[in-house]
């Protein structure tokens, strides 16, 4: 495992920790899109179908469990915790995420490496992960006061896939059997590109020492 991949995973982990910290300590999920969180839970379920059958390393298995468990605990907090659920801005979270699921499923059925259940579900998870942040980005744009934890959460999440892209370039150059991953690369590129606008305003607010606010 190269440094880009490891740093990417750590950024991903950090984003989840930051979000859980906000929810657990502040007892608030203000500004967080439940729809994006639902999509991520679905992404992890579909991608990690092999969690008990396809052992790669202890690291991989533990990370998979952590991502699945954190995704479901976030969903539980936002939907069932009696204090946290009242801080959820349902009216601001209006993205039609079922259309994303449908579109990604159709695309996965049409464009995949192999037509098997496992492979199509895996491909679906790759497509869905690329666009899962959209409800959250739309919600951020509507939120006048984005708190630091929410801003950092989205920033770490964007950095994660950006580092994965460097990892792909590194692996492409250093590994012999690493040339067939175009499907992941295109999706990963789109996923990272979706954050470009957010990154711009995040860095700008950080440099000017101002509160993060996205233009409507």
């Amino acid at each position: 495992m190269n440094i880009f991949r490891f740093a990417g995973d750590m950024m991903h982990l950090l984003s989840v920790v930051v979000l859980l910290l906000k929810i657990h300590k502040m007892k608030s999920c203000a500004g967080i899109s439940l729809k994006t969180q639902e999509l991520y839970a679905l992404v992890f379920i579909c991608r990690y179908l092999d969690i008990f059958t396809g052992f790669i390393s202890l690291y991989n298995t533990i990370m998979k469990i952590v991502f699945l468990a954190s995704a479901f605990s976030i969903l539980w907090y936002m939907r069932s915790h009696k204090v946290v659920r009242q801080t959820y801005d349902k009216d601001q979270d209006t993205f039609r995420h079922y259309f994303l699921i449908l579109a990604c499923m159709v695309l996965a059925l049409l464009v995949h490496h192999k037509f098997t259940f496992r492979e199509v579900m895996w491909t679906f998870s790759i497509y869905l992960e690329a666009v899962a942040i959209l409800p959250q980005l739309v919600m951020l744009q509507r939120t006048r006061n984005i708190d630091n934890l929410t801003g950092n959460y989205v920033f770490f999440l964007g950095t994660y896939r950006g580092l994965y892209m460097l990892n792909w370039v590194y692996r492409y150059l250093t590994e012999v059997h690493y040339h067939h991953r175009w499907l992941t690369w295109i999706s990963g590129f789109i996923q990272t590109a979706l954050y470009a606008d957010f990154f711009y305003y995040y860095v700008k607010s950080w440099r000017n020492n101002e509160k993060l606010q996205l233009p409507a």
């Binding site: 991949r5 991903h12 790669i56 390393s57 991989n60 991502f67 490496h113 895996w122 059997h177």
Partner: peptide, 10 residues
């Protein structure tokens, strides 16, 4: 290329 090789990323 083996199946496992392609799925070693998270």
């Amino acid at each position: 290329i083996s199946e496992a090789d392609a799925k070693d990323e998270l």
